[in-house]
């Protein structure tokens, strides 16, 4: 069921959405990301894989400047979103994060109602002129994340009362409601059971039609199932980047081969 459209995913050429040049990240004295260059395409799911501690999540968090919240993190190099350097002095991270949404490892709904959770982003960014428009955005986002039918009768109930898989889809709906251009997902299924994982993966595949999706995962199967492009990170280096099929069938680098065949990681 999940090797959907494998043939299609042999990519119709897309625009470059994000391009990273010589990115270095330091945590205090630790050199966490070493000289990463990568180009991420629009309307494509890109997977970051690699053993734990390899820097894939760190790099993901650079793309919407979530590392700014960590005092000791220091970033060098350039990351461009639609050609604009997101680490430019003039860029407001708040505005950036509205364009580059993020879904986290653990579902983290706010302790508010389901409706308020989804409406939170549109409200702070002023995306709706009135209640009707806001209602529309909420419904559309919940439909988009395949949650509408399950929650439409209890929008007033707290989001924390949903099951794990529903919570994660709520978080995706919350991210989608902000109308981002890029959606970053940091191991979105690691806290979910297989059924919920299946639902979220299906959703990710649908999101591809509108967004550039970057997903960090420790599961190679998941990367193979949902992504068109895959980047393999190892010890802070971007070892290999290419078509998902190529990475898994004919890796160029011996480290990639060792990882996908289960010898490291």
């Amino acid at each position: 069921m999940y090797d959907i459209n494998r043939a299609e995913s042999a990519v119709t050429q897309q625009d470059i959405k994000i391009s990273a040049r010589n990115v270095q990240v330091y945590y205090g004295d630790t050199h966490a990301i070493k000289d990463v260059n990568v180009e991420i395409l629009d309307k494509t799911v890109t997977a970051f894989i690699g053993p734990s501690g390899c820097g894939k999540s760190t790099f993901l968090r650079c793309i919407n400047r979530m590392n700014d919240t960590i005092d000791i993190a220091r970033i060098e190099g350039q990351i461009r979103l639609d050609g604009e350097d997101i680490y430019d002095r003039r860029v407001d991270p708040v505005q950036l994060r509205a364009k580059v949404g993020m879904v986290f490892q653990k579902p983290n709904p706010f302790p508010k109602s389901i409706y308020d959770n989804v409406a939170y982003g549109p409200r702070i960014h002023g995306l709706a002129r009135n209640k009707t428009e806001l209602d529309e955005i909420v419904e559309k986002s919940l439909r988009g994340s395949a949650l509408w039918n399950e929650v439409k009768d209890r929008l007033d109930e707290p989001g924390t009362g949903l099951s794990g898989g529903q919570q994660q889809r709520l978080c995706i709906a919350r991210a989608v409601a902000t109308a981002p251009e890029v959606l970053l997902m940091d191991e979105p299924c690691s806290a979910l059971d297989p059924i919920a994982t299946g639902q979220v993966e299906e959703l990710i595949d649908q999101l591809r039609s509108e967004y550039s999706v970057v997903i960090v995962t420790h599961s190679m199967q998941q990367a193979a199932r949902v992504s068109q492009k895959t980047a393999f990170f190892h010890l802070g280096n971007l070892v290999e980047y290419g078509e998902t099929d190529d990475i898994f069938t004919k890796p160029q680098d011996s480290r990639t081969e060792a990882y996908i065949s289960g010898r490291i990681g």
């Binding site: 919407n64 979530m66 919240t69 708040v94 505005q95 950036l96 994060r97 509205a98 949404g101 993020m102 879904v103 986290f104 490892q105 653990k106 983290n108 709904p109 706010f110 302790p111 508010k112 939170y120 982003g121 702070i124 960014h125 978080c171 919350r174 991210a175 902000t178 970053l184």
Partner: peptide, 27 residues
């Protein structure tokens, strides 16, 4: 209040004060 809750709000593009007033304090 768990850090993940703050990350959730910041990741949506809240300013830190919005995160505190609208997410952390109500929680």
């Amino acid at each position: 209040v768990p850090q993940s809750m703050r990350d959730g709000a910041l990741g949506l593009g809240s300013t830190p004060s919005e995160t505190i007033r609208q997410v952390v304090l109500p929680a």
